[in-house]
Design a protein around this nucleic acid. Structure first.
Lengths: 213, 213
DNA sequence: AACGGACAAATAATATATTATTTGTTCCGT
DNA sequence: ACGGAACAAATAATATATTATTTGTCCGTT
């Protein structure tokens, strides 16, 4: 009743967190024995988790050579961004069409906790994810949502990597607020345009930094 | 140099094949020990494979209760189809824009082997996948392609399931041919419209059958 | 000194053993 | 006869042990 969380899920959650937050750098070797000891589980559980993360695209396996954190590149970021723009636009359109009063208030609350984000690093990251997920969550298509989540995680990784080099020069909170306003007034065209711009602009800034070889 | 295929990859490939081809029915229990014995590998390898397939959405894990083949439903098929229409349209647009002469001939050859499909069941399935993949393969976005593959596998599962109840009453080969013609004449609008119709029509027919509860 | 091969250490991959949880069955009480 | 506790069998989950491959280092040869 309390914690039905299996060991593998722990491994996956922890590794995903560490990869997305860029505590584990791209290309870093993922030593199975070390990870097992760190998390306090068996090697088998770690391998199982790594296999799942590989399917998500956060980890790469080189046969007989073990696992590494997935690499990054400019072209990957570009493709990722365009894919995310496409998917998230679809989701947002669907959400605006189908979302009810509960969805609206959910978006509102998510934005509020985003406004008070400076509390802690981890909380801010969580609030950001919550907001973006709230926006699209009412689209009614589980497959699109699954992909949205995957792409979001990938994007976040790039964003966290860049934070180590330069903070955003834009009014990101303002952009989020604009999107929320458009969403709440059910202006699909405006909302999707703003979201597209938000995603592309973030990527554009990252592409300008030089943390990518 | 010859076969660097690891055991886990074998497990994944085999299980995916059996699930997609509907030899393993939705909801079927996946006994780890049995599978391990069948494939001739250790239980660990099987668990690792199952974890990967879970991330792909072909397998569901119930903590402490093992694994099952992912379930199906009318709503899932609908959502799946709409997601696939959206993604595959994007990919096709990109392919038509970027694809070169090599891509064209690749599509042509894939269609030819599709025409001679009646050879064997397995060969026909492979040809079908090859054709659909050839169409979108030049889109230049690895993320979209990754998703296209995922959704294609899911769709195929529904299609194979339905084959046990009724064969398609349409001229499917003709539809494929029309798509190819539109693609080769670089008529993006026509090609995407035909592809959308092709995917939706297939789903519509499946929804009419009663293999879905 | 540079290259190459052989040995040794590390570690990924696999197999087996152990433990814990679930599920099915039997048997008792009402 | 029905319901439920108690036991037993099955099996998922985990831990440990073994094997095979890779990687790094040292030494000998040219």
């Amino acid at each position: 009743m309390s914690a039905p969380e299996t060991q593998v899920e722990q491994v996956i959650a922890r590794l995903r967190r560490n990869i997305v937050s860029a505590r584990l750098m791209p290309g870093a070797k993922l030593n199975i024995a070390t990870l097992a000891q760190e998390v306090g589980v068996s090697a088998g559980a770690v391998r199982e988790g790594l296999a799942a993360l590989q399917a998500e695209g956060l980890v790469q396996a080189e046969p007989r050579r073990g696992f590494r954190v997935a690499g990054i590149s400019r072209s990957d970021l570009s493709e990722l961004t365009e894919a995310r723009v496409a998917i998230e636009r679809l989701c947002l359109e669907g959400s605006i069409k189908r979302g009810g009063i509960d969805w609206e208030s959910n978006c509102r609350r998510a934005f509020e906790s985003l406004s008070e984000q400076s509390v802690s690093e981890a909380a801010g990251m969580q609030a950001h994810e919550r907001f973006h997920h709230a926006l699209v969550s009412a689209c009614g298509n589980r497959w699109l949502l699954k992909m949205q989540r995957m792409l979001y995680a990938q994007s976040e990784r790039y964003r966290h990597l860049s934070i180590r080099f330069a903070s955003p020069s834009r009014d990101v909170l303002g952009e989020h607020g604009q999107i929320l306003d458009a969403v709440l007034s059910r202006d699909t065209e405006k909302a999707t345009t703003l979201l597209d711009h938000h995603l592309r602009e973030t990527a554009r800034q990252l592409l300008q930094t030089d943390f990518l070889t």
